[in-house]
């Protein structure tokens, strides 16, 4: 167990630091709620006007939207400014000297960066959507419980998978800095790619049928589409297991790719002096 101590320390230190910003979290909460409300009203209007059956029911989309608002921060859409700074001013050299596995060390950093602010946001937003909305007489817009225990438990597992996947993708963008130095490119392109392919713009099953196969075969759907549809039961528990395995396979592939690239990048890295 002692082997993991440095990585655990990194995660907990980041958590404690990020939990300091409570006012920012409150502002974020209000923003997410407002955003969720707009999305709900738009989708509901589409459903109200339509008579055909859709690949997702409206209550399933409601779940999708609330969970999307709650776990928005977990998406790998940006680069940790602190890390970018490290690469820019050359202090990345210190990390190379540490007697730890570099990939695992940075992965722990990135994991905390992805999950700490999200916890702060997801818990209050979840409480609001689960407990407060029904009391305001808005029960049909509330975030209900999963349809079965199995769905709930599998959602938990796939959420952990999503966090691992998100961190693995963040690592790839971080490692790309070893070549590009500037984070500007990645920070501009990633939000567009991630939000579309994860399912944050609209739930993936609502895209046209001819796009579905392509959407199925890309890693980003493991971030949003898979866990949220498991929660609502749109992906039934027996299929969910398969989906979670494919999430795991993607994590494995991306971690492997990250390690290969990091080994290469670290070898030819030119440390910026200063």
């Amino acid at each position: 167990m002692k082997r993991f101590l440095p990585y655990r320390a990194v995660v907990s230190a980041r958590y404690r630091m990020l939990l300091q910003y409570r006012a920012a979290a409150f502002a974020g909460l209000v923003t997410q709620c407002f955003w969720g409300a707009i999305r709900l009203m738009i989708v509901a209007a589409f459903y109200a006007a339509s008579t055909q059956t859709q690949p997702m029911s409206l209550p399933e989309v409601v779940v999708y939207i609330w969970l999307g608002q709650a776990f928005f921060g977990m998406l790998p859409w940006n680069i940790d400014e602190e890390f970018a700074q490290k690469v820019r001013d050359g202090s990345v050299a210190y990390d190379l000297l540490r007697p730890v596995d570099l990939y695992a060390f940075w992965y722990s950093h990135a994991l905390a960066y992805r999950t700490a602010p999200t916890t702060l946001r997801a818990i209050p937003l979840g409480c609001l959507a689960i407990l407060v909305l029904p009391r305001l007489g808005l029960a049909e817009w509330a975030l209900g419980a999963p349809p079965s225990w199995a769905s709930g438990v599998l959602f938990g597992v796939s959420l952990v998978g999503a966090a691992a996947l998100s961190t693995a993708i963040t690592m790839l963008t971080h490692i790309s800095l070893l070549w590009t130095i500037s984070a500007a490119g990645m920070d501009r392109i990633m939000p567009a790619v991630v939000t579309v392919f994860a399912g944050m713009v609209i739930p993936l099953p609502l895209f046209p049928d001819w796009m579905q196969l392509c959407l199925r075969l890309q890693p980003f759907r493991g971030l949003v589409d898979v866990p949220f549809r498991i929660y609502s039961g749109n992906i039934p528990p027996d299929v969910a297991l398969l989906e979670i395995i494919s999430q795991g396979v993607w994590v494995g592939c991306l971690v492997w790719l990250g390690r290969v690239l990091l080994a290469r990048g670290a070898r030819k890295l030119v440390v910026q002096g200063g």
């Binding site: 738009i42 589409f46 459903y47 567009a192 713009v201 609209i202 609502l206 895209f207």
Partner: peptide
């Protein structure tokens, strides 16, 4: 790109729901 993908969402919803 970032603002343009929003329209992709609008288009997809119309593709799915018609009106």
């Amino acid at each position: 790109l970032i603002t343009g993908i929003e329209f992709l969402g609008v288009w997809a919803l119309f593709e799915r729901f018609g009106r």
